[in-house]
Simulated assay, not measured.
Amino acid sequence: MHLSSLPASSASSHPLAPYGWDADWEAEFAPYAEQGLLPGRVVRVDRGQCDVVTAVGTVRADTEFVVPRDPMKVVCTGDWVAVDPGGSDPRYVRTLLPRRTAFVRSTSSKRSDGQVLATNIDHVVVCTSLAVELDLGRVERFLALAWESGAQPVVVLSKADLVPDPVTLAHLVRDVETASPGVPVLTVSALHGEGLGTLGALVGAGTTVLLGQSGAGKSTLANALVGEDVMDVQAARDVDGKGRHTTTTRNLLPLPGGGVLIDTPGLRGVGLFDAETGVGQVFAEIEGLAGECRFHDCAHDSEPGCAVMAAVENGRLPARRLDSYRKLVRENQWIVAKTDARVRAELRRDWKRKGAEGRAAMEAKRGRLR
């Protein structure tokens, strides 16, 4: 009997089980098993080809047959695929299995395309270095995309050994926790091994993707979790904590304690891509307060009876949080409006209304001055 046609009950003993293979993937793959294809997981993609781990080892396959018009459906690290059996030359990826989750950001193109960074993930680890000043707005941006992916976000504050004062470290953690409701926040020092046990236990089951800027310590963290130097590491600049892109491709690595890790290149830009739900989860306290506003379409600016502004004024809500929320909501609306005519029309109406209100306020002010 071929490995790809084993019954679902045997999925846990399948050679691909350490990479996340389970009974549900077995069922999804059944039609392709009948065609004699092999199941596998993409561990790396490079210039139209990919490395796929299968029950008979890692094979190199061409992605020509699954090059779609939709950039959201290109082969990506983390995908489960059906590949040609042994003896095929060249060897092709024939299809992708439906993705359970996907971390997507917008590209820098003016077309507002999405770019899939990792698929079929269970945890998104947002790695932020304590060697430089914390950028809470960037953390919130990463978390919005992480929640939108369908995976569980985790924030890791790396290089904790560079903050020897426990009081200062506690303040930094508290600031990040305020910006990350519902998200575990861990401090880690890969140099001293501190916090790695807790992180390893948290991500030891399923698939975890490591995300962050260059110099955030992702490759060092990946090496520590894997237990060997599988990723090259370079020193970050002292001035801004940034480093060169040591990791240039997304790589899927099995962890010794179970689970797999996807390491990624440092991200300079993290544009939102239709992440309304994710933004709402990152700013859950603001969304909750908004339900108490007098007007259902309150912009939380100068409207009477605004519960959000009241929370800022009485100190319950940091003004920085509201500013960040407004920025991400506007950005997400702009991204969605590029492809949704209804949203574009709503934004135009809103701009016209606010313009009319602004002109009316100016006229009233001039009348009082006369």
Results as ranks from 00 to 15, higher is better:
R316Y: 06
G358C: 13
G212M: 05
D113W: 00
V336R: 09
D161I: 12
K338Q: 13
A11I: 13
L134M: 07
W351L: 09
G280D: 08
D70L: 08
V167G: 14
V203W: 00
T95E: 15
V185T: 03
V93E: 05
M72P: 01
G258M: 05
R100Y: 12
A356F: 12
Y325E: 03
N332V: 01
L328A: 04
A307I: 07
P254H: 03
S219I: 04
Y325L: 03
A55C: 12
L16T: 11
G193R: 06
T63Y: 04
A102V: 06
A311P: 03
H14K: 13
V66S: 10
F29H: 06
S158G: 12
L136C: 11
G227C: 07
E148L: 10
D62V: 00
L289I: 06
F29K: 04
H192G: 06
T101F: 08
G278R: 01
E346L: 11
A17Q: 15
S158E: 12
E133R: 09
R47T: 08
M231H: 02
C298D: 08
K218H: 07
G243R: 02
V167K: 15
N223M: 07
D165Q: 15
M231S: 05
H123S: 02
Q213P: 06
D350A: 11
L162I: 15
D62I: 00
D232Q: 13
G257P: 06
M72V: 00
D89S: 14
Q234T: 08
R105F: 04
S4Y: 14
S180F: 04
A364L: 14
S88C: 15
S13L: 12
D122P: 09
G195R: 03
A284N: 09
G20K: 08
V209R: 00
F283C: 01
N251T: 10
V56Y: 11
G288R: 07
T246C: 05
T248E: 13
D340V: 01
G259D: 06
R138K: 10
G355Y: 07
T101L: 10
P166M: 14
V173F: 11
S5I: 15
G269N: 09
V42F: 15
M1G: 14
P265T: 00
R141Y: 09
R370L: 14
E285I: 00
G40C: 15
Y32G: 10
A102D: 07
D263A: 02
R141T: 10
R359T: 12
N120I: 01
Y92C: 11
F295R: 09
H300S: 09
R174C: 14
D84R: 06
V93T: 05
G217I: 04
P256V: 05
W25D: 11
C50H: 08
L253D: 00
Y325T: 02
D79M: 12
P68E: 14
R359I: 12
V176M: 10
T339N: 11
Q115T: 01
V156T: 07
N251K: 01
D238I: 06
W25Q: 13
C127K: 03
M72F: 03
F65H: 10
S180E: 05
Q152E: 15
Q115W: 02
R244P: 07
R368L: 14
V282M: 03
T198D: 12
A170M: 11
A118D: 04
A151N: 10
R47E: 14
P254V: 02
V233K: 07
P98C: 14
Q281H: 10
M231W: 01
Q234Y: 06
Y325A: 01
L199V: 05
